[in-house]
Each structure stands twice: as C-alpha cells, then as structure tokens.
Nucleic acid binder design. Structure first.
Lengths: 358, 358
DNA sequence: ATAAATTTGTGCGTATGTATC
DNA sequence: GGATACATACGCACAAATTTA
C-alpha cells in the first residue's frame, strides 16, 4: 500500500534518489530542515529523522549554522576509518619511518592503517589492491612497485577513480599517471645531479656510481649523475657504473666495488644509490685496505644516519622520511574532506654534508 | 560546569562504559527507554537519541516490542580477513622485523594487518583497542604497553574473550594473564642470567647494568642479572645499575655511563638492556677515551646487528625477530581454525658471541 | 485465548541554545 | 543586530510487536 509508506522513509528515499541521479551534487547544500518540513508537510523532527539516517550512511553531512551538504563520496562505507597503505617493504631501511609518519597523521583523525607490502613485486601489488578493494577502506597511500616500468594494471586505479576513493602515490609514481594522480615524491634526478655536482666541485674527476635498476628512483638518480658529468665535461664511462637489483643488494655492490678497485680502476669517488648501499661500498673499500674519504670519497642518499655512532658521517641527500609520510597522509585527509583534485608535492633534495667526501 | 554536559552524551557514555566493562553482556537486555528516562530524569526522546547513536555504532540493537539488547559482535563481524596488530613502536629497532614476520605468515592466508602503535603508552593502548573493537576484525596480536604494571583494562580483554575473538600476546605479557592468555615471548630472566654469567665466566668482577624500567622485559633481564651475580658471590651494587625510561633512552644511558666512568667507578663490563642501548653505551665509553672490549666489555640483547659493518660485533642474545612474529601469527591462525585453547611459546635465549667482550 | 501491560517505532509541536552569514 | 540553520531537549499521542497476567 502506498498510504502505508512512512513519511521519513519517503523523504530519505527521495533525497537519496536526488543524490544518485545527480540533481544534488557533491558539496551542494540540500534544502534546510524547515524548508523540507514545509515541502513535505511534516514536522521538522520527521525531517531530522530522515536526514539523520542519511548522515549516518555517509551521504550527507550537517554543518552547524550553515546547512546540510551532499557528501563528496557517494559510497556507503564512508566512515570505515580505514586507510589502505601499500608499500614495497616493511622492515627495511627508511620504510618504517615513512610508515610512522603516515600513521602519526592518520591516527589524529582516528584512522587506522591496513598495511600491505609488495616486496617490489608488480604481481603482489595487483593482488594487494584486489584484496583491499573488497574491504571497507576510505582511501589509499601507495608506493608503487617497479615504478620504472609502465603500469599494466591501470584498470585497478581507474576502479578507484570510479568509486571516488582517493589515493596518493608516495616515493615513486608510474610515469603515465604522473600528470593526473596526486603524488608525494622527491626530485631524484635533481638529487643525483646535486650530489654528483658536489663531488665535481670538490675536484673529483673519476666518479663511479652504484645504482638500483628496478625502480624509478634509481633510474632518475642515475640520470642526474650522468647530466652532472656531461655538464662538467667529464667522460661518462658506463663501466664505472654498477647496477644492481633488489635481490642482489647484499652481495653484488660489495663484490663489484672490490673488483673495480682491485683491477686498478680505482675511482676518486663513488656515488651510491642510497645510504644502505653506501655502507656496503665503504666496507668494500675498507676491506681493500683503503680509507674513506682519504682514498675514495663516498656519497649516500636518504640521510638514514646508520653510521652516526661511529665517527664516519655520510655526505648524503636529505630524505624527509617521516615528513614524507606525513605529507602524503595530510594530502589524503585533505582529499577525503575536500574532494579529489590535482595535488602533488615534489620535494627538492638538499645535500647533508658529512665527512665522507674529501 | 557539570550542567554543561549534554544529557544524551552522558547517557551514551555511561552505556558504552557498561558494555565495555562487562556490566552489560552480549545478548543481554539493556534498561527500557522509559526506565532510563526515569533514571536520568530526562525525556524519552533524549534517551532515544543516545540509544540511536549506539545502535548506529553497532553496540546495541533494538527489537520492536521486546527491548534493546547488547550486540554480540561475533555474529556481525566475521571472516573479515583482518587482523589487528597493536605494537609499541613502528619504526624503531626490531619492531619492523617482528611485524614483517607476522605479515609474512598472515598474507599467505589472505589476512590483512590493521596496524596500531601505542608508543608504550597504556592510555593509547586502551584507545587502540576500543577503536579496533568497533571494526571488523578476526583476531589480534598485541605487544602490551608498560607490561611491568598490572593491567587495569583487563575488561577489554575479557570483552575479546566473550566475543570469542582470539588474541595472542607477543614480546611481553601482563603478569596476571600469563597463565590464561596465549603468548609468544622470550625467557628474559634467563637471558639476563645467561649473559651476565657469560661475563662472570670470563673473569669480569665489576659488572654494571643498564636496564629499561618500563616494561617487563627490562624487569626480567635485571632479575636474571641479579641472580647471576648473587650465585657467583659477587656483590650486587644498586649504584652500578642505570635505569632508564622509554623517553630517556637517547640521553640518559649515555650521560650516566659517562658519569659512572668519570667518577672512578669504572666497571669491567656493562650488561645492556638491548643492542640499541649498547650502542649509546659504547659511544659513551669511546668518548671517555676508553676502548671496547679492551677497557670495558659490553653486551647487548636482541642481536640487532647494527654494528656489523664496523668491525665491532656485539656479544648479545639472539632475538628471533621475524621468527617471533611468525610464531605469533601461526598461533593466531591456529586459534582461528581450531578454536581457543591454552597455548604459549617461551623462547629460550642463546648467546651470540661477538668481539665486544674481553 | 484474551486483555492488559510493556516496549519500541513514528510523528507532531514547542522552546531554547549556538554557530554562521 | 537580526535572520537563518542546525543542535538539544521536553512533552504528548498513537501504532505495532511482544510479553505477561
């Protein structure tokens, strides 16, 4: 029976219909309580009952003294207070610090992190996304895996766009999405350039490099390294660059540097992909009976400060670490509150001077 | 002013408290709207407003004509494939490795981690638990905060028992629950004993100690240290033990060790709470112009291997780290599959010999 | 089996407070 | 200051479901 329809249910359904059909658009003000009460010939309490349901379901939100507004995200599950965080690693190096930064911002707004790691594997990234899409999640922070390769699973990100679930890339970004997707990252090419330039300015001529080959950061830092050499008129010798993979990192750089030194191709300086690798390189140099920086200068990247306690302080590039995580989380929360939109932060690298350069 | 407190908020909070404290148990009927209205001297509408919030949050559910009842969450929240992990820290020291171990096991069964950290604060632990109890979570792995103090929020854990949500303690365990709650931890007293004994066996007489005062691990390692000294007939001098708190850890141990050395109370050896603190201690010794182990032996705990690259290798106690996380996750998955039951793992500490002991 | 009592659900009207414009 | 809009709170009436006498 039509006459049996409850009044507040009718109002609720009508408003829902208007929101879905687009008659009321995200951010737009819906009619005031009194207006609706007059329109429907009901009491204001009845209108409030209807609005209350919609508020709890996340379709609209009230602002004291201003009015009631249509939510940005047309989704049921808006107050899950869960944020999906997908990172490459969990326990290594700077990653826990980035995560800590993310968490410190999110927890202030009562968000919880659902954490996934990919071990820098594309396949795992896809699986993580698919798994998390089934869950009740308000937004994502994603550190892309193997970000130097074209992203073949862009359809999953399109799905996020469709659901209006905001996401932020951190550390790296698939090149094809760099223009459209919000991201927080460093200008790695500039970093590679600056640190190489720093060595050149201090009179180093034979500058070797150790770079990671399977992420965009490694590619970009190498690019900057080459640009600095070319600009200074120094010869770029591919043989004095050591490339390594994620899986190699504990052995390959160490043995390659040793070999490089032992075969009388001793460089003046070695630019390292990051501080972690710089430690292996320093160990290789030391094990060859040479000293840093007296015989060979070494630079790092990320300012991880592993070596602080032991006298030798790496000259490196500052990595904001926690701050980077905080920025990404701030950006995501802003998107959750104020809707999607073009946003990105590129952090310009600065050199941190230590005593590992002659 | 008391009068400023909103009435429905007060009612809501009171009911929530009763639910969490266990005064109202799952399935039980809460007082009727009219009863509450009379009790609180408010209108029935006001009571309804309060109940409505709790209904939306899932704590209670109304049944027409019968009453309003406390939810038993087990019915609503199941098979979410989410595991809540509450740890003290996120980015420091061995914690990321433990977390990695947990994740590696859970992800095989398609579980996701919802991560929370407490910074070793009891208040935060309570907040985390309350927040997570609202969510859709199948089980918990918890590293208790300030586990040396009696747990005053045991009611929350009882809540978990009632809902039949399994949980496993890791690293530490509140002493009052040690007999009943599944846990995975080390025998810290034995570890403290063994490492002190190791020093005694190598002829050290004046053995100082640096211990953390605000967790059960510190208390237990200290107990073992005292037992080893007593057993060997060595004098236990409280002045040669430095206690520090979580918040102190970066300054206090360093300055105290320096002071100890400078005031002619130089010990033969220093037993440290963990490897992290051992590094500060070594720095203090070095800064006093002394050498490790020639002048003073130093031992760590946890086998964090921070110092590996630099020649000095700490003599320490092996900490399974990733393995510990894996064991806890395995135990939890077993409980999810086969029901709760008495389970616990105590890991017996082994010494890892380095070159930091003379 | 029925009526009465209890309890939640829906709805109206009014008043006062407080934030925004 | 005044108008508008949401927030809290009270009182009342009746409907619908359930329990109890």
């Amino acid at each position: 029976m039509e006459g049996k329809e409850l009044k507040y249910i009718k109002i609720e359904a009508d408003l829902k219909e208007m929101i879905f059909s687009g008659k009321i658009r995200p951010g737009e003000k819906i009619p005031s309580e009194n207006t609706l009460a007059a329109e429907y010939q009901v009491s204001r309490q009845t209108v409030r009952k209807a609005l209350n349901e919609l508020i709890h379901e996340g379709y609209i939100y009230p602002e004291h003294g201003r009015g009631t507004f249509c939510s940005d995200m047309i989704r049921h599950k808006r107050n899950s207070k869960n944020i999906g965080v997908i990172m490459t690693y969990m326990s290594d190096y700077i990653f826990p610090h980035v995560l800590k930064g993310i968490n410190s911002v999110l927890e202030k707004d009562d968000y919880s992190i659902i954490l996934k790691t990919t071990n820098n594997s594309r396949t795992v990234e896809v699986r993580c996304l698919e798994e998390l899409l089934k869950k009740d999640i308000d937004g994502f922070i994603i550190e892309p895996s193997k970000s130097h390769i074209y992203c073949k699973h862009a359809s999953l990100y399109k799905k996020l766009d469709e659901y209006k679930i905001p996401y932020v890339f951190i550390q790296g970004c698939y090149s094809q999405m760099r223009d459209t997707c919000p991201h927080v990252l460093m200008d790695d090419e500039d970093g590679g350039y600056k640190i190489t330039r720093y060595l050149i300015d201090r009179g180093h001529k034979k500058i070797a490099g150790v770079f990671k080959s399977d992420d965009s950061q490694g590619q970009n830092r190498h690019k900057g390294y080459v640009r600095a050499l070319n600009e200074a008129g120094l010869n770029y010798d591919p043989d004095s660059v050591i490339w390594y993979y994620t899986e190699d990192r504990k052995i390959h750089p160490y043995t390659s540097v040793k070999k490089m030194i032992e075969t009388h191709k001793k460089p003046d300086a070695i630019v390292c992909y990051n501080d972690q690798i710089a430690l292996y390189v320093i160990k290789a140099i030391t094990d060859c009976g040479l000293k840093v920086p007296d015989d060979i200068s070494v630079t790092g990247y990320d300012d991880f400060r592993l070596a602080n306690s032991f006298g030798l302080q790496l000259t490196t590039i500052r990595h904001p670490q926690e701050k980077l995580g905080e920025l990404a989380a701030d950006m995501l929360i802003d998107m959750l509150k104020n809707g999607n939109g073009e946003r990105n932060i590129v952090i310009h690298p600065e050199i941190v001077e230590g005593n590992s350069v002659r």
